[in-house]
Design a binder for these strands. Sequence first.
DNA 1: AATCAACCCAACCGCCGGACC
DNA 2: GGGTCCGGCGGTTGGGTTGAT
Length: 262
Amino acid sequence: MKMVQEETRKGPWTEQEDILLMNFVGLFGDRRWDFIAKVSGLNRTGKSCRLRWVNYLHPGLKRGKMTPQEERLVLELHAKWGNRWSRIARKLPGRTDNEIKNYWRTHMRKKAQERKRGVCSPPSSSFSNISSPSSTVTTVDSMQFKTGKASFYDTGGRDGQVMGMAAVHEENETVGYSMDDIWKDIELSEENNSLMIRPVCEENTSNFSCASIIASLSLDYPWYDSLWSIDDFEEESKMINNLPSDQFISSSNEYGKAYLTG
DNA sequence: AATCAACCCAACCGCCGGACC
DNA sequence: GGGTCCGGCGGTTGGGTTGAT
């Protein structure tokens, strides 16, 4: 890899850069990003380093498909908070705001398109696969928004809650697809696709499990514990009573080698 | 086998707010 | 109190991958 010293690097990170960043985060912690960017010689902005760490290198990250529980939680929390991705992400240990945002955009855009196309077709087809094929979202009875009619592709904006509600009012008449309907379709989908469940870790092709990586890290990097707020984890994991902890740890990480060698 | 469309996701950008001087 | 710096957040984009035709 050729490091360009003159100008700030952009674009995809190389494995060497990742290792370098890991090492410097190990030395200086995950706060002083601008400093890390400078002293590491990465020629990246502090922001870029932070993003790479938070969205990709952080040892606590989960990988692989969203579980049905997570999907459900995302739907619930988005209905509650709008596009407050980081806030939503805090309720899903191991998932980043970016990941959730991407997930939402991908899936909800699909639904919106289907809904557009499906105006003249039976509703059962328009939302029959609200979540990914692996989805087995179960009935949700505690949904606060169950009676509301929300825009699926809403976005809430910065003030998600308010904007979300505004969207509800705005689109109430023209769209008319309630969360109630959505959940009905989810249930239908569950019935139809219950045989398609795939374990989260199915994609684990690496020889290095997160567990071993984390174990290794906690030895090599005493700072690790403080990086991902354990208190937050424990407290907020209580909310996600259906998320087994081993699932959190065991998903794959293709950069395991980098961790172990870095 | 080739092509195209849809999907996925990493990364960037701009804005905002808090901390510090 | 005002200015600057920097981290955090939400929105957007573009490239790679996958699946359908």
